[in-house]
Design a protein around this nucleic acid. Structure first.
Lengths: 152, 152
DNA sequence: GTGCGTGCAAAATCTTTGCATACGC
DNA sequence: GCGTATGCAAAGATTTTGCACGCAC
């Protein structure tokens, strides 16, 4: 998906609700596209990156844009670390996936699993819920931190 | 598991590391036992409940105790809602389970799934991680909120 | 031109921490 | 008695909001 395709669909998605395509919103989404799938940024990260790339957006607007982009399905909101949220690009090249997180050093790996998605679907259906998305978070110790742990 | 069993194992777990069994820590853990499995409390909830039950613990100590109890495996820390963490009792009667959350009203249902646990185990093993726990979070719309949604 | 969006600074949350005192062991 | 734990208040971190101005449509 090129920048323009995304820009078009962003504009369409926004106009549907009387919202506007602003340079700030474009910059936030483009940052995620430049940086690629599978990268997890905090609001502060996004703000810093935009400052560095000379296309500053105020932190308040970053928060507002992130929320909007999640609402519209352009980003996924993650709760990987203990403090604060992280966001990643939602796109078709990189479909529903899950996270394996080292609780000690924060190293994060991604993986896919059809059986997990199926379990989420089944649970939603059983209770009459309409599925939006499901994500598995696996807390673990990475190989390096297992070594360190054994010195304790 | 009775209150006393838990108190004993809490004391053992703490003494192992030179930590102490204090009335405050007991009160926090007992609150979760009284209230039962599958209930998700925030730090503020815990504080309020303890104030109500005439066994006040300062909010700072509640935070410190929750962290300790999670570290020792007596509680699970959850990130269900958008703001703040929630905690639930970890016990054998109510083993590893997952959450189905209505993104609109916050209604939360629990379910179990062996295939999800198996997928978590497999992912950890593939990358040499040592599994701690895995939990699936399914975001969805509950039946009631689906109705409301269609009025929009 | 209308009214949504932005930037700024202030406020609201949520959580941690420094320090003197209290108390488990 | 030693050293950990608590309570308090202050500080930190993260996120939201009120308001005047600017700009997308």
């Amino acid at each position: 998906m090129s920048f323009h395709d995304t820009e078009d669909s962003l504009q369409i998605g926004l106009h549907k609700d009387g919202r506007r395509l602003t340079p700030q919103r474009k910059r936030v989404l483009e940052l995620f596209e430049r940086i690629g799938s599978g990268v997890h940024l905090s609001a502060e990260d996004v703000h810093q990156q935009l400052v560095i790339s000379q296309s500053k957006v105020s932190l308040a607007t970053v928060y507002r844009s992130l929320r909007l982009l999640v609402e519209k399905g352009f980003l996924h909101q993650l709760e990987l670390s203990e403090g604060g949220h992280r966001f990643e690009l939602a796109n078709d090249d990189h479909p529903d996936h899950h996270h394996l997180i080292c609780v000690r050093c924060g190293r994060t790996e991604e993986f896919e699993s059809e059986s997990v998605l199926e379990a989420g679907r089944a649970a939603a259906e059983n209770l009459g819920f309409q599925l939006i998305e499901s994500s598995l978070k696996v807390r673990a110790l990475c190989p390096k931190c297992q070594e360190k742990q054994s010195f304790t």
